[in-house]
Structure formats: C-alpha cells, structure tokens
C-alpha cells in the first residue's frame, strides 16, 4: 500500500464519520472560548462605546494594546494566565479522552459512528492513551535535545565568529531536524494508538517503543504519509492566509465571513489530524501483519440423537466423578 492509498483510505474513513470531526471541533472551540470570551469581554467593555474602537477597526493601533496591558496590570488578579493554563490542561486531558473514541472508530472501519460506540472507545482507551502520551514525552524530549545539540554545536563552531550567516543556516537546519523528528514521533505515536486499539492492549509502553521501531523500519511509507499531510496543511494555511488577508473585516457581514473562513480552516486541521490516524489504521495491518492463531483440528462430526433426551419421572442425575454430595 502506498502513502497516497493510505491517505485516500483514511479520508474515506473520516468522511464517513463527520460527526466525530464535529465533536473534536466543538471540544477545541469550547475550550478556546473559555479563554477568549472573558479576555475579549474585558477588552471590549472598554471599547464598546468608544470612538477609538472605530479607528482601531480601520487600522489596528498598537498604542491601544499597550494601554490595555497597562490597565490590566491594575486588575485585582491577573486571571488570564490561570485561565489559559486551565484550558490547556483540559485540552490535553480531553484530547486524550476523545482520541480514544476517534481512533477506535477509525481502526474498526466496520463500526459506523454512534455516540455509544464513540464514547465507549473514549472510556476504554483513556488510561492507555494517557500513559502513552506521558511515554511520548520521552521521545519528544529526545527530539528537542537533538535540536538543542545542533544549536550548541553550531555555537561552538561558529558562535565566536564575526558572521551571523552560518548560525542562521544552522538555525534553519535545527528547525528542520526538529520538525522532522517531532513529526516522526507524533506519527509513531499515532501507530501506537492504533496498535493499542487494534490489539485491545493495555501495553502502552510496549506500543510506544514497538511503534517507534515500526515507524523507523518503514520510514519511507510512514513519513511519506506525514509529509503529504504536512504539505496539505501548509497549502491549507497558505490559502487561508491569502483569503483572510483579503477580507476587510469592518462590517458585520465581512466579519462573519472571516469567522466562517477561520472555522473552516480549523475544521481542515481537525480533518487532517484524523486523517493521520486513519492512515495509520490503513497501514497498520499491512506493516504489522497480525499473527494468525494456530490452526485448530477440524471438528469431528458426532451423530447426535435428534431431539432432547427423554427424561423419565423419578430419574435422578448421576453425580459427576470426583464430586461429593
């Protein structure tokens, strides 16, 4: 199976479970609103009846931002950071929970979306996926450490020089390597999730290392999928930015159009995320063929008397051997 075939199959799997995409989108939107609404409530309350707002809508004035920051310093408690951290924590925990249901439905293609099946998967896989997420930090840490070592090495080689250019290019290299490695880890963890669900296993640590090994062995196919999805994301982002920059969001109509366009972009990101799992689900049986159980001997047909045994009145069951009365 090629990378494109896997993506195509994954797209089909996701497309037949649109409600699942909707749940994922709604979850992120609700948490984002948890931070955005109070923050904007505070900001907009100052501007909602100010003519300054009209000016800022025509061309954003950085002075207002600093005025607002300065004013917020006098608030009794800076609530933005705790709120943001809470949203982040809920997002990670909630994300782990929802991933369980999503991966289950994408792995078991024969099961269509239903809330019961979805949430059953969420609950069943929650702790396995949570452990997996914690184990994945080790791999991400490793990827970041390699990036940091590139920076350190570049600093040693060129840091004392009089040119910035080699360090700039070393920075590009470090970013590229780090993105590639983090992409590899993220993809391997997708395979680990699929493995846990497909095998109905609780062995998160084994799945993590096994999937990293699997992804490394089949890096062409696995990273091919990742690369195609990355390019699709980049293309979606480029299209989003180009269109968004052209929308002059000053009237209600244009503002609503921009919001709709933004949400379409967010949906596309959710879609790509699920496609990544779907592609892992497509490729997993190919890359990791299931061990078939040993063949059983063919059953011997025994003639059985038709109909139930005839019990006569007064007859008692014979006790089985070894049992005591």
């Amino acid at each position: 199976m090629t990378s494109m075939q896997a993506i195509s199959g994954a797209s089909r799997r996701v497309a037949s479970r649109k409600l699942m995409v909707g749940i994922y989108w709604a979850f992120h939107t609700a948490l984002a609103a948890m931070v955005a609404l109070p923050l904007m409530g505070a900001a907009v309350s100052v501007l909602s009846h100010s003519r300054y707002a009209t000016e800022i809508m025509r061309g954003f004035d950085v002075m207002w931002l600093f005025e607002a920051l300065s004013a917020s310093r006098n608030l009794p408690s800076p609530m933005v950071l705790p709120l943001f951290l809470l949203a982040l924590l809920l997002a990670v925990k909630g994300g782990v929970f929802l991933n369980g249901g999503a991966v289950k439905l994408l792995v078991h293609d024969e099961i269509g979306y239903s809330p019961r099946e979805f949430y059953e998967g969420c609950g069943r896989n929650y702790w396995r996926f949570l452990r997996l997420m914690l184990y994945s930090l080790f791999f991400y840490g490793f990827a970041l450490a390699i990036g940091a070592s590139i920076t350190k090495a570049a600093g040693k080689i060129w840091g004392e020089g009089l040119e910035e250019r080699p360090l700039v290019f070393a920075g590009y290299l470090k970013n590229a390597v780090q993105i590639l490695l983090c992409g590899f880890v993220a993809t391997a963890m997708d395979y680990a999730k699929v493995r846990l669900v497909a095998d109905d296993s609780r062995q998160s640590l084994r799945a993590a290392f096994g999937s990293v090994r699997l992804a490394w062995k089949n890096k062409g196919t696995v990273m091919g999928v990742w690369l195609v999805l990355l390019l699709l994301w980049a293309a979606a982002t480029l299209v989003y930015v180009q269109v968004a920059n052209r929308i002059q969001a000053v009237t209600i109509g244009s503002i609503l159009a921009l919001i709709a366009w933004q949400q379409l972009y967010v949906l596309s990101r959710v879609w790509l995320r699920m496609t990544s799992w779907g592609a892992a689900a497509e490729l997993d049986p190919v890359l990791r063929p299931r061990q078939m159980p040993p063949e059983e001997t063919a059953p011997v047909l025994v003639e059985v008397a038709a109909g139930p045994p005839v019990l006569e009145a007064g007859a008692e069951a014979e006790p089985e051997a070894g049992t005591q009365q």
Partner: peptide, 10 residues
C-alpha cells in the same frame, strides 16, 4: 460597537 466585539472575539 458590535463589530469590535464580534471581530476581535472571533
């Protein structure tokens, strides 16, 4: 200024 509320919150 509903535009500010809607636009910025969005």
């Amino acid at each position: 200024q509903v535009e500010v509320s809607a636009g910025w919150t969005g």
